[in-house]
């Protein structure tokens, strides 16, 4: 999936399922949208469904350093690339 497609899907998830209002790509997720560790786990589940494959534990642990939507997109791109190899 290209980055612009990923961005559209992730923004839709954050707005529809996580009730984000006017999300900015470099907003601090925790400070500006109240996104916490519970949300991070929920989002990983949705990313798995979106990509169509499961993430292993090491991949999931890397997601815990995510701070912004651009970080989410970077993270998914790396995951996609590693699974295509």
């Amino acid at each position: 999936m290209r980055r612009d497609e990923l961005q559209t899907k992730i923004l839709a998830i954050l707005e529809d399922d996580f009730e984000f209002e006017h999300p900015g790509l470099d907003d601090n997720l925790r400070d500006e949208h109240g996104f916490d560790s519970i949300d991070a786990i929920e989002l990983l589940g949705k990313i798995e469904l979106m990509l169509g494959f499961s993430l292993n534990r090491a991949e999931k642990e890397k997601a815990m350093s995510i701070r912004t939507i651009n970080d989410i997109l970077d993270y998914i791109e790396k995951i996609q690339a590693s699974h295509q190899q």
Binding site: I38, I41, E42, L44, G45, E48, F53, S54
Partner: peptide
């Protein structure tokens, strides 16, 4: 089953 189909907050 391979996906995280049980919500992370279901226990809470």
């Amino acid at each position: 089953e391979e996906f995280s189909s049980i919500g992370a907050v279901d226990y809470l």
